Simulated assay, not measured.
Amino acid sequence: MSTVIYPSPIFGPIHSRRLGVSLGINLMPADGKVCTFDCIYCECGFNADHRPTLPRPTREEVAAALEAKLKEMAENGPKPDVLTFAGNGEPTAHPHFAEIIDDTIRLRDKYCPQAKVSVLSNSTMLHHKQVHEALMRVDNNILKLDTVSIEYIKKVDRPQQPSYNVEDIIESLSAFKGHVIIQTMFMKGQADGVDISNVKEEYIEPWLKAVERIKPMEVMVYTIDRETPAKGLLKATHEELDGIRDRVTAMGIPCTASY
């Protein structure tokens, strides 16, 4: 079982397959996971297995820790390519997410103006106006859309809100008017005896139509890279990811594949 729980509020830097030298910003507790999804492929494990006892870091704690780390990196290296909001759960669920974004942009401009600010989000909080506006201010607004099949989403992403509606998510993604990067996990195998492959045409074609409707600046397709809490999950092949990538680029949308 995967038990990767990240320090909070700052971790790394680590090398990201998609983003380069990435300094992580974790807005969730340092001893557990708080997420609006409970994905069967999450490297942090299932929500129930990592209930936190500590609170989320405050806005002030995040800013102080980030400034200290950026000072150190400016003096000793390596310089970050990106400041990435990720970690033990959904970053946009932090009650002061918008203000923390403003602090991060200010500190980035002061210590490492070449770095990009990225947010990795599962898209569940986009209906909040302040979250949408904050994401419009970051360089890389990377938002998840694994499929448009609600049955697949229930089996794999497992939203924790009963009100989750994939059509509403697509509308919210479209509302960024192109200032969005779609990130999609493709994989194969079984979980609890159920087929969870989304590299089949029945999933790919509707997803492509949604991507065309959203009109993102970029799409990132990727597959499993680390241990997963559910067993029986398999990587999509290079050929499968390349084929999906090529269909996205054929629509005139840049797309990268990470294996």
Rank of each mutant, 00 (worst) to 15 (best):
V166K: 08
S174N: 09
E171N: 03
E218M: 14
N198W: 12
E240I: 07
A210M: 11
R245L: 06
D242E: 13
G232E: 07
V199S: 05
I204A: 09
M187Y: 01
L173C: 07
A210L: 13
L241E: 10
Y203Q: 07
S174M: 14
F186W: 01
D242Q: 14
V221Y: 03
M220A: 11
A134I: 04
A134N: 02
W207C: 06
T256G: 14
S149N: 12
H238T: 12
S172M: 10
Y222Q: 09
D192M: 05
M251G: 03
E201R: 08
E133V: 10
E133H: 12
P159S: 04
S149K: 01
L173P: 02
M185L: 13
R247N: 01
I224E: 02
K231G: 07
K215A: 05
A236C: 05
Q160L: 11
D225R: 14
I142S: 10
V180I: 15
S149A: 06
S149E: 04
S172H: 15
G243M: 14
V156N: 04
I253G: 14
I253C: 12
P162W: 08
Q190R: 15
P159H: 08
G178E: 13
M220Y: 15
A210Y: 03
R226H: 12
L241R: 09
R226W: 08
P229K: 15
